[in-house]
Amino acid sequence: MTTRAAEPPRPPTLDEVAVAAGVSRATVSRVINDVPTVDPRMRAAVERAIEEVGYVPNLAARSLVTRRTDSVALVISEPPDHREYAATFLNRVFTDPYFGRLTAGAQEVLRPEGIHLVIIPADPPAHEQVLRYLRQGHVDGVLLISSHAADPFPGQLADMGVATVLSARPGRPVPLSYVDVDQPAGVRLAADHLVARGRRRLGTIAGPQDMPAGQDRLSAFRDALARHGLPSPPVAEGDFTRASGEAAARALLDGHPDLDGLFVANDLMAEGAVRVLQEAGRRVPTDISVVGFDDSSAALEAHPQLTTIHQPVEEMAGEMARLLLAGLREPGRSPRTVIFSPTLVVRDSS
């Protein structure tokens, strides 16, 4: 005797929700598709009925009606003609605390709205593939981390009409909203702190000079020292990785062994620089004070812990998400710029 396997229970239908709520099938459909003109009392009744009967909306069918995917892409872009770096693109993406903080801040805003965040690295080999994916409407909008002045991605997304918000000032004018920290103000805090500590022979490890952030932090440090009547600092350039900070610190010590203060354009490079200074017998902060930028986890992992410039990355990412949601609700909205204020966090390295 053979027995038939029990058939899985049939999922509740839209009609059953309508009966439970005491409304028409069309009203249930409007609630599920988030039509704003539904009477609030009917909407509440339908939402209760959906929970009671266990109805799960067909998201694929819903997207055909609403033309929304309820997902947003966090795209981390690097231009095709990028320079050579000490670490590979994906290694930098997944080891730099900055990207994790951005992701967490965006999620805090998007998750309560029922919107999924899709993380998409877009290094040069993947550029065209990512553009096709975005052009085909797989996501509703883009939070774009584009750090390089020559990156064509922001302009391409603007030309495609994809709702996009940038994580920093773009290197070229583009009609997109962006969120940034007041870079010069942060650097001035670092310079003023070093000078207040009695440091006069100052150097800097700059970020990449093909990135607006790297450019802004270097030029602001030079300006700040000039304001204090100090000479232009010796400069070694890194790529925002720990290894590049180590290499840059060695170069600075070789040419300027008497430095007593160092401003480093991000915490990862500063952590690497501190290691090299200590290996060279320079005590931090007794012999040389070090100040980083970002206030990331690297600042706390350094020994000694880093004095640094705090930029509220999570709050900045949350504002990016809010700007994007506002743009999706109101297409054609004029681009906005939101600038956050940095603060100095004093720890043991200065």
Rank of each mutant, 00 (worst) to 15 (best):
M1C: 08
T2L: 15
R4V: 10
A6T: 15
R10W: 03
P11V: 06
D15Y: 02
E16K: 06
A18F: 00
A18M: 03
R25D: 00
V28E: 04
S29Q: 04
D34M: 07
I50G: 00
G54D: 06
P57E: 09
N58V: 05
A60G: 10
R68S: 11
L74A: 15
S77F: 11
S77W: 10
E78K: 13
P80T: 13
P80L: 10
T88I: 01
L90C: 04
R92I: 03
F94C: 02
F99Y: 12
G105I: 07
A106M: 08
A106Q: 07
E108G: 04
V109E: 13
I115A: 05
H116R: 08
H116E: 13
L117C: 10
I119H: 08
I120Q: 11
P121H: 04
P125Y: 09
E128I: 08
V130A: 10
G137S: 09
V139A: 09
L144W: 00
S147E: 06
H148I: 00
H148G: 00
A149V: 14
D151W: 04
D151E: 09
F153I: 11
F153T: 15
Q156F: 02
A158K: 05
R169L: 12
V179Y: 12
V181I: 13
P184N: 11
H193G: 07
V195K: 15
A196F: 11
A196W: 12
R201A: 15
A206T: 15
M211V: 13
L218R: 15
A224T: 14
A224R: 13
A226I: 13
R227E: 14
R227T: 14
H228Y: 15
P231M: 12
P231V: 15
S232C: 05
P233R: 14
P234C: 04
T241V: 04
S244Y: 09
A248P: 02
A251Q: 14
L259Y: 02
A265D: 05
D267R: 04
M269F: 01
G272Y: 02
G272P: 02
Q278D: 00
A280F: 04
R282N: 05
R283M: 02
I288F: 00
S289T: 03
V290W: 01
G292A: 05
A317H: 08
G318K: 14
A321F: 10
L324N: 03
L328C: 12
E330P: 05
P331R: 12
V338E: 11
L344E: 10
V345Q: 08
